[in-house]
Design a protein around this nucleic acid. Structure first.
Length: 439
RNA sequence: GACCCGUUCGUCUAGCGGUCUAGGACUCCGCCCUUUCACGGCGGCAACACGGGUUCGAGUCCCGUACGGGUCGCCA
């Protein structure tokens, strides 16, 4: 029996992180088991479907690195993979229900007649769950075909999973109560059911249900804010699943290797953006300089900054210092351009030392005397100067940092000195001194 | 309301009857490293929802209560 999983979103909005995580669990499981991962678009709600939403699904999936073996634009043995194109198949299955007298008409719609008995499912995550269908008030016969002739979700979803030979249905817990309905339908078709695994939902930080519109709900936003797909994947995987080790930072292939449905939790998890950012920082730090520069480039360009020919080195100087790639432009703008803001707080800190202006002025002279500029040469000059002034070099480094970069945080001072070069350092130092005097 | 599922630090979680004076991670705080900024290292604060059982022994099993989530559509 081959392992086949699927992700079956409906194109009615952007790709939601909850949906992405469902897709991820299916994808990880399929990849680990050497099975197939199918993408099926459930576009039966003509009113709400949009092309934009359909594209957002493809883009989100691709960005996160979840490739599908069968699906739209890819084809496969069990297509078509848009439900809107599968009507003949549904008609066939519906006829079967008619012949077996399992459906009846009501107001033009067709209802499926449940068997009035208890239905037990064996969920891979939730365990054994029994629902009593003898209680008719709680489980009214469900509509499978609308009065306009179209089929509803429960029907098409079940038919497609059967037709596409899906072996494991991994979906959100919001479908748990639907499963006995699906089981009854499958039984009526005389087929055997796939295995089910219902994974807990993702909640907002305050514990409320996470839905569209909520902060951090759209996968596309993570891309815009400069998250690495591998970091988001890693974070999402750890929400409701644990790898049984104390490590938390995993590459995608490590996740595939370790994933297991048995280790999926049953309680819903809250979405903690702080930890997600930390995770991103961890993944960012593991990148090579070249990779990091390539990942940061589009965001720096989008900020309207000219890259210059030293971009890779400049970007590398802040690699271990940012949590999000979107922080990169503001972290290096003072190197790429000469017009940048002076941080008031940092300036105030420097001004706390009333005697600093003449000292920095003297340091500028010292720098000016350097013929062969380098970070080491500049630091040596700084040391000698500090000694002459009977102060510690460390005392001068923060003011120098602020003078050169306009802020208190940033790349290593040595990197700043090198990347800026002698002339720009001198100019900034002098102009900063004049600002100090005038304050 | 009915029916399901759940409940360990603020958050993500380890724990599957004794090894738990409950472990790890994020956040926060302190120290160290760093002549600067970070990274990093070390340490600290902080949890078994509550009440009954079962048991020699319960965070771990059972039952209630409370709380949270889900589902009750001709949406998916």
């Amino acid at each position: 029996m081959s392992i086949r999983t699927r992700f079956a979103p409906s194109p009615t909005g952007y790709l939601h992180v909850g949906g992405a995580r469902t897709a991820l669990f299916n994808w990880l499981f399929a990849r680990q088991q050497g099975g197939s991962f199918v993408l099926r678009i459930e576009d039966t709600d003509k009113e709400r479907n949009t092309d934009e939403a359909r594209l957002a699904i493809f883009e989100g999936m691709s960005w996160l690195g979840m490739d599908w073996d069968e699906g739209p634009d890819k084809g496969g043995e069990f297509g078509p993979y848009y439900q809107s194109e599968r009507n003949e198949i549904y008609n066939r299955y519906f006829e079967q229900l008619v012949r077996a007298d399992r459906v009846y008409e009501e107001d033009g719609a067709w209802r499926f007649r449940f068997e009035r008995k208890t239905v037990t499912m064996h969920d891979l995550v939730c365990g054994e769950v029994t629902i009593d269908y003898r209680d008719e008030s709680n489980t009214p016969d469900m509509v499978v075909k609308r009065s306009d002739g179209s089929y509803v979700f429960h029907f098409v979803n079940v038919v497609d999973d059967l037709e596409m030979k899906i072996s494991h249905v991994i979906r959100g817990e919001d479908h748990l109560m639907n499963t006995p309905k699906h089981l009854q339908l499958i039984e009526a078709f005389g087929c055997s059911a796939p295995a089910y695994a219902h994974i807990p939902l993702i909640l907002n930080a305050d514990g409320s249900k996470m839905s569209k519109r909520d902060e951090g709900a759209a996968v596309g936003d993570y891309q815009k804010q400069g998250y690495l797909p591998a970091a988001v994947t890693n974070f999402l995987a750890l929400l409701g699943w644990n790898p049984k080790t104390e490590d938390e930072v995993f590459s995608v292939s490590e996740l595939i290797e370790r994933f297991s449905l048995e280790q999926v939790n049953r309680a819903p998890a809250r979405f903690d953006i702080e930890k997600c950012q930390w995770m991103n920082q961890q993944h960012l730090a593991k990148l090579g300089d070249e990779e990091f520069a390539a990942a940061a480039r589009p965001l720096v360009e989008a900020a309207g900054l000219a890259l210059g020919d030293q971009f890779e080195r400049i970007a590398a100087a802040v690699k271990a210092k940012v949590r999000l790639l979107s922080e990169v432009p503001a972290a290096i703008d003072f190197i790429l351009t000469d017009t940048f803001d002076l941080d008031e707080e940092a300036l105030e800190k420097v001004n706390n030392n009333a005697d600093i202006a003449p000292i920095l002025d003297g340091l500028a002279d010292q720098f000016d005397a350097i013929t062969d500029w380098s970070a080491d040469a500049a630091k040596q000059a700084l040391n000698e100067f500090a000694e002459a002034k009977q102060t510690k070099p460390g005392k001068l480094m923060f003011p120098l940092r602020v003078a050169l970069s306009g802020r208190g945080h940033g790349p290593d001072l040595g990197d700043i000195l090198t990347l800026l070069g002698k002339q720009r350092c001198l100019k900034r130092l002098r102009s900063f001194v004049s600002k100090l005097k005038s304050t």
